[in-house]
Nucleic acid binder design. Structure first.
Lengths: 146, 146
DNA sequence: GTCAATGCAAATCGTTTGCATGAAC
DNA sequence: GTTCATGCAAACGATTTGCATTGAC
């Protein structure tokens, strides 16, 4: 598990090299922030975290956006947009999962259900779709907020 | 089915009266556009459609946004945000359904799967969530685009 | 040395708001 | 006549872009 982080960084290095692009500290920092995050973060939250955790790096918000687009494109991270809280990112190093979201306090619970995954495959097949990914959110009120 | 539209308009009239608000042509137009739409529309698409379909109405974009917020709040319409295409709306007069989305051409297929619906309920119960709604999207490549 | 990536500021996009006017009740 | 809703334009927040500079290779 702990070693996973190194693997993801290596993956990033490989992708960058393969594409003939350059490996920069900034992209690495953004990816690391997301790997260590327990929650889903917006671009601005990531930017603020970097300023706190890596005060020497002097990264610009535009670079954060550019790094996020890049990392999402190469599938190292993923984004979801819930309600009015804007686009949020999470690392793809985590196993696949869906989300239960409390509409009162914003709490997010992650879960996986094998049965649902199977049905999704079946539905895609029925419609002649080749599925690349999916996202599912259940909105509701968590036990604390009820 | 054809009669459904009238029912929805009556529902809107009822809600508006109940809340002590005013019944306006603008809110009706926005709702009608969504009821007749075959696809999911953004606020701007709705605005443009109104200018074409109801050229005499002289509705402002701000009013479209206000009408959409209102209609969503009273649950006559619903919104989803996929990928980078922004927030899109659809009428709730349709039955509940989920979405299969082609990432190449943007085609959207709607479906419902009872088994998945049941599992979702179960998962929510396990986590002590009171579910109010959910949204599920399968992304992939449709038969035409493969 | 070359070319991609960066930081910064300006520009842009979608959405919201303030306010005077108009329409529903 | 009162109050809510509208249209317009200005304001806003999030994201993107242009450009000169820096840093990776």
């Amino acid at each position: 598990m702990i070693n996973d982080n190194e693997k993801v960084i290596d993956e990033l290095k490989k992708i960058v090299k393969q594409k003939g692009l350059k490996y920069t500290e900034q992209r690495e920092i953004v990816l690391k922030i997301l790997m260590h995050a327990q929650e889903h973060l917006t671009a601005e939250e990531i930017y603020n975290l970097i300023k706190i955790k890596e005060p020497d790096s002097n990264i610009g918000i535009a670079t954060v956006y550019r790094a996020l687009s890049f990392l999402e494109e190469v599938d190292l991270i993923a984004s979801i947009t819930f309600g009015s809280e804007g686009k949020k990112y999470e690392s793809n190093a985590k196993a696949h999962h869906d989300h239960l979201i409390c509409t009162v306090c914003g709490k997010i619970v992650e879960f996986v259900d094998e049965e649902i995954e199977k049905r999704q495959e079946k539905i895609a097949k029925q419609n002649n779709f080749k599925v690349t990914s999916h996202s599912m959110q259940l909105y509701g009120i968590c036990s604390n907020c009820q």
